[in-house]
Design a protein around this nucleic acid. Structure first.
Length: 643
RNA sequence: GCCGGCGUGGCGCAGCCCGGUAGCGCAAGCGAUUUGUAAUCGCUAGGUCGUCGGUUCGAAUCCGACCGCCGGCUCCA
């Protein structure tokens, strides 16, 4: 009689031929048996370690979602006879199933599918696992072309496996799917779910193969978890930079410009200026030089750099004149190389750190564009550090330091760091690639940062280190990238004269700490939900006159605020006080002063902050001094007056 | 580029299924009110219904193509 060893160390005897579920019900929906996820119906043959898998755990949600995907496909097959089903995995927060339907479906159909799914849940159909021979599986899944392909390929991959090998089917009621499992014991054990969206997806992700309809859903152990998830979606929507950008009058993308191209309005312009001044000045402090380069260059530059060979599909088509072809720049690096090459360089000149807020254009595919996060024209905080091989690791470490300093200013905490090695398609030979990767690895190890390695994800000219930062609601954004490049120095024949009076090849580090300012701005807007820290806020202190006769006094206060470098705004509209305060709140004005007879008589004022806190009896000069200090120090929290 | 959805005054939306030459709220302008911490009242103006073409006596509405946006796929920073 096999024994079950439970996580608490206790042992339970299991009658011969009985499934593990008996010992784990009713809490569990699956089991981990000797480390493997199994159905509750799994029958052990010897003593095993068993852990119950509950619906709310990571494992449990995975099983739950996968089972929900099955039931959805089953429901679709019921409603649309002739449906072919492909694959239906659990994903982050939910699941999907890729289907080929006999007719196009729309989001209205999702409701019908949900209704049918609930019927299947109510029917309490057991998920039955069957191990059958491949030939039988093919028979049982006759007409299911995608499944047939998977079954046939299973055989291929395993090479010499004899024809007697078996595959696993899961069946509930009459509906059968090829699947490894495990699943919940019965459809009644599904949690709460909701179908969310429709999308197209290629069979096996291959553009040349049939396009299937992907139906997405979300599934959770309890109604409460589903509600939490829906709230998180709402929260993300509330922070959507496209919506806030319009509400706060920061930027827009009129259709006449073209997709992925944006104009910044006056309010957005101030925000951009503050951002740009901050990074530019900080770079000067850290030994960077500022350079300026044009937006287009002759094709020969891009031939030398390798962009036309490896990056052409992301470049706008060339324009011509009598001198030949010109390309709009997708990167700044070749220009910085030319600046380096404008003189003979010596080791005494190195490291050279050339920095530019360089505007680049990339012909990104239409479907990938997304607000300011994914654009066709944007400005990078782009720098190229040209140094000797000996200086390389030290320079990379300095970049890491600057990265952490800058991001902490915005309130981003510990980064998630990735080292991406070279992709297959490169312009770099293996020896160079190895040196570049080694330098990055060395720097990472010395920095003490934890990192993971992503093979083949690097740029075409070199491996890179990426920094991802977590925003206020826990989403990770890739912001910083540091790339190590031995290839461009070679291609452009860059040199310096060493201490030994010989010519040497320098090394180049490409790095953007914010990435593109557009993308970074979008991330900041979502991170702050539009409520910028004072230093970035387009307006900093808003004056609301109670009646017209207080307008002039407001103007005087505004002038005093302006003298200390603050950005005041006077609401001169002929609206009620309530309406003007509401307007201030909607524009996320950091501080609002309502000014009337009482204040003018007393010579003190009431400050309202963005959270609606009011502090009366404040001396104006004190308020202005406190705010000037808040902005100067780039503090993230609002000043609490009166405490 | 592909699949699905959407495109109506500056913004958010209704009307479209069942064709009969547009409606609401906010914003704007004007007037009244002069107001004390998230919406005072009234009036006015503003739209070739994304573009082009087709069907029809008649198209915001039906059909087609194109443009753009959104959600995915794909690609990638």
């Amino acid at each position: 009689m096999p024994k079950l060893i439970l996580p608490d160390g206790s042992r339970v005897e299991l009658p011969e031929g009985e499934p593990v579920g008996g010992a784990l019900e009713p809490g569990a929906i699956a089991a981990r048996v000797d480390g493997e996820l199994r159905d509750l119906s799994f029958v052990p043959e010897a003593d095993v370690e068993v852990e119950p898998v509950e619906a709310g755990s990571d494992d449990g949600l995975h099983v739950l979602r996968h089972s929900t995907a099955h039931v959805m496909a089953q429901a679709v097959c019921d409603l649309f006879p002739g449906t072919m089903y492909a694959i239906g995995p659990a994903v982050q927060d939910g699941f999907y199933y890729d289907l080929q339907l006999p007719r196009p479906v729309s989001s209205d159909d999702l409701l019908d599918i949900e209704v049918r799914m609930r019927e299947i849940v109510a029917a309490d159909q057991p998920f039955v696992r069957e191990e059958v021979e491949r030939s039988e599986a093919l028979q049982r899944l006759a007409g299911q072309d995608f499944k047939r392909e998977i079954i046939e390929q299973l055989g291929e991959q395993e090479g010499e496996v004899a024809s007697g090998d078996t595959v696993t089917l899961y069946r509930n009621s009459e509906w059968v799917d090829l699947c490894l499992g495990p699943h919940v014991p019965s459809t009644a054990r599904l949690g709460t779910f909701k179908l969310t969206s429709l999308a197209g997806a290629y069979w096996r992700g291959d553009e040349k193969r049939p396009q299937l309809t992907r139906i997405y859903g979300t599934a959770w152990a309890t109604q409460e978890d589903l509600d939490d998830y829906l709230h998180r979606l709402e929260e993300a929507e509330r922070r959507d930079h496209r919506k806030l950008g319009r509400q706060l009058d920061l930027f827009s993308n009129p259709e006449e410009l073209g997709p992925g191209l944006w104009v910044w309005h006056p309010r957005g312009g101030i925000f951009r200026k503050e951002l740009e001044d901050y990074v530019r000045n900080l770079h000067l402090d850290r030994g960077y030089d500022l350079v300026v380069t044009p937006h287009i260059a002759r094709s020969v530059l891009w031939e030398t750099s390798g962009h036309l060979a490896k990056f052409a599909e992301n470049m706008y088509p060339p324009m011509h004149d009598e001198q030949g072809d010109y390309y709009v720049k997708p990167m700044n690096c070749p220009f910085h190389v030319l600046i380096y090459k404008s003189q003979t360089r010596s080791y005494r000149d190195l490291p050279m750190r050339l920095s530019e807020l360089g505007t680049i254009y990339r012909h990104e595919r239409l479907g990938t564009l997304h607000g300011l996060l994914r654009i066709r024209g944007g400005t990078q905080d782009d720098s190229h550090i040209i140094c000797t091989p000996d200086q390389l690791v030290e320079e990379i470490l300095k970049v890491f330091d600057l990265t952490l300093e800058i991001h902490s200013t915005f309130g981003f905490g510990d980064p998630v760091v990735n080292l991406s090695t070279l992709p297959g398609q490169t312009i770099v030979d293996e020896a160079m690639a190895a040196r570049a990767t080694e330098a990055l690895t060395n720097a990472l190890d010395r920095s003490g940062l934890a990192y993971t390695v992503a093979e083949g994800e690097g740029a075409f000219y070199g491996p890179k280190v990426d920094f991802h930062f977590k925003d206020a609601i826990g989403r990770l954004w890739q912001l910083t990238t540091v790339q190590c490049d031995f290839a461009l120095p070679e291609r452009f024949d860059m040199e310096y004269t060493g201490e030994d009076n010989q010519r040497h090849r320098p090394v180049m580090v490409h790095r953007a700490i914010l990435g593109t300012l557009e993308r970074f701005s979008a991330v900041l807007i979502e991170h702050y939900a539009g409520a910028f820290p004072l230093w970035l806020s387009p307006e900093q202190i808003r004056f609301v006159p109670v009646a017209d006769r207080h307008l002039e006094h407001c103007e005087q206060l505004a002038a005093r605020a302006r003298e200390t470098g603050l950005r005041p705004f006077v609401d001169a509209s002929k609206e009620s006080v309530g309406k003007k305060i509401r307007a201030a709140q909607l524009m996320k004005a950091p501080y609002t002063l309502v000014v009337g007879d009482r204040d003018i008589e007393a010579g003190t004022y009431t400050v309202r902050d963005r959270d609606g806190n009011e502090t009366p009896g404040l001396v104006f000069d004190d308020v202005v001094a406190a705010l000037a200090e808040e902005a100067r120090s780039r503090r993230l929290e609002q000043t609490r007056f009166g405490s």
